[in-house]
Design a protein around this nucleic acid. Structure first.
Lengths: 334, 334
DNA sequence: TTGTGACGCTCAAACGATTGATCTCCGGAA
DNA sequence: TTCCGGAGATCAATCGTTTGAGCGTCACAA
């Protein structure tokens, strides 16, 4: 059962060639001149022994690890799951593998320590906060890195989505349905995505000639959303529709509406940013704005792969942003 | 900005000691006899240069990668997210890092190829199906591996949860509420967890002296759950309660109940296996059985760390399994 | 006959860290 | 004076691959 490990040298011995030949065959070195029959012998030996290159040795020699790091706030968030999926797919296409870490396991600093030097060829930070001392440490580490979906602090390499447009799309939808008192359940004030979504809300309200309704902030959790929505509904003249910056908050918000004895969408319409599978199974099904999260992960990996040390990257990902209309939005009742 | 990489030799030069000393200081080698002032010099040099050991070199020499692999079917599934969290936390405690892969990115075979040899010290398979040729390949690879939450095929190393007891707990809850026609919306027939949950259902029904109600199988998705529930409700004498093997199916099932014009829990009570945050925010909030998923991931990593090549591991994880009573279960109406 | 070049390999020096073995002092004991 | 032992290092082989340089043979042209 316990297999003793197979090295290049073993393969070379069986195939009766030099180790260098085996290496070049394995790596499909185009400069290699080899007789077809020799190549055959090598391939047969590899097959027979079940040889697989030792990653540590290769990576020591070439100083490329064929591995990317991906740090996210939380695995349990479906938004991050989408990003991981995209990143993984693109990495796989490049023959790379992803080493994940999350803020729930331990902080970014600890993660970087465990990563050590030379383990990854690049690092993706998906909304990992904005600890500027860690950013400085990252810059010292000679690892190319990139922020996804976040431009916190003075970061000069990031890819974000067009949250502004997503927000505007959501608000326009509500306006088109005939709503005029449209409140905004925003994200945490220090959050970059929240700020951009709020900007989109304001812009769209302005374009529609409507006064900005009440705006309340909440963190991106159901509990936060519920509390914030409760405040909105306590208004003597409550909004007929609410644009929620985040789908997790929206789920809490829906609960708050029910708790208040009101009905969605008859009394309040709700639309939220980011689509996820369960949204279609809520009661009522939640109208959302779908953003290309997987594409974001994919694009991040692509950029990492081709990044030069001092590149500046400030990209708003082009990609479909669409309103998924479901049951939580309808024309105002009154 | 671009930092040239710092090696042991650089540190040794600055600290005016041999490389061996630096290595032993870094690794806190207990056999090292060193003057405090020398140690100081070394530590100062490390600090000054920002030295971090090269993982590839270390791992080539020691043949330990300080990395575990974790393969899961899908990142978007909150059940797997919990497992990852636990695994990550335990790995971090051991100074290890986790390299994840999912079936949505590419298959296990491709993942193993990209992993190569010597990159990971062990592999956790969380419900990754039962392709026996891959299992054989794994066994050839000399990597300790372990299945989580799954005992498919003839696998001889696994940790599972007590799904049987979880199912029984759910059914007992329904029985206690007074239900007598309790149907079972089971998981896919080839699934190991599904089989164990079904066994728990049967046992509990038997213990209660109740006839096993209709049993329908569905895959672990909302769509599958909805279709299966529709079939159950089409019965001339439909069940007053349904034990659903999985929370994703349960969400679909709830929708099917509404579609049929019925109400939960008045017309049908629903209880499902596995708790997740959103369950409390559904309408009605879903009664679930919480299982120690994070603990499962944690335990998997612990076992990997101490596993010998030919160990057999067949463990049913001890840990709290509890019913989380919410709004989807109530005494039968009729 | 000598030179040239291509073909098909082989040589050997890295990459950076680890670790068992060895070496040099120096003080104290015999 | 010689020997011993221990403290405090140093030496050098090794892990498995990669890759630029080199080497022998043969065909062919001059």
């Amino acid at each position: 059962m316990m297999r003793t490990r197979v090295t290049l040298a073993d393969v070379a011995a069986i195939a009766r060639v030099d180790r260098a030949v085996v290496s070049r065959v394995v790596n499909k070195d185009p400069t290699l001149n080899i007789r077809p029959e020799t190549r055959e012998r090598v391939l047969a030996a590899i097959e027979e022994l079940g040889y697989r290159p030792n990653v540590a040795a290769r990576s020591l020699r070439t100083s490329r690890a064929h591995m990317f790091g991906l740090f996210i706030p939380d695995f349990a968030n479906p938004v991050h799951a989408e990003i991981i999926k995209g990143a993984e797919a693109e990495a796989a296409a490049q023959g790379y593998v992803i080493v994940t870490g999350s803020a729930t396991g331990a902080g970014l600093g600890e993660y970087m320590d465990r990563i050590g030097q030379g383990r990854i060829d690049g690092l993706l930070l998906a909304g990992a906060g904005d600890d500027s001392s860690l950013i400085a440490q990252l810059d010292r580490s000679a690892i190319p890195w990139l922020m996804l979906n976040n431009r916190s602090g003075s970061v000069k390499r990031y890819v974000i989505l067009d949250d502004r447009r997503a927000a505007a799309l959501a608000v326009e939808h509500l306006v088109l349905l005939g709503h005029r008192r449209i409140a905004h359940l925003a994200g945490p004030s220090r959050s970059d995505t929240a700020a951009r979504r709020s900007a989109g809300y304001s812009a769209a309200m302005g374009d529609a000639g409507l006064p900005e309704g009440p705006i309340v902030a909440a963190d991106y959790t159901p509990a936060g959303g519920a509390a914030a929505m409760a405040r909105l509904l306590a208004d003597p003249e409550p909004p007929t529709a609410v644009f929620v910056a985040n789908v997790a908050s929206a789920i809490g918000a829906m609960q708050a509406v029910r708790t208040a004895g009101l009905e969605i969408p008859r009394d309040v319409s709700i639309v939220a940013v980011h689509d996820f599978e369960l949204a279609g199974y809520l009661h009522p099904a939640l109208t959302t704005v779908r953003m290309p999260l997987a594409e974001l992960g994919r694009r991040g990996v692509t950029l990492l792969g081709s990044m030069k040390p001092d590149d500046t990257i400030a990209e708003v990902l082009a990609g479909p942003i669409e309103l998924i209309q479901r049951g939580s939005t309808a024309p105002p009742h009154r």
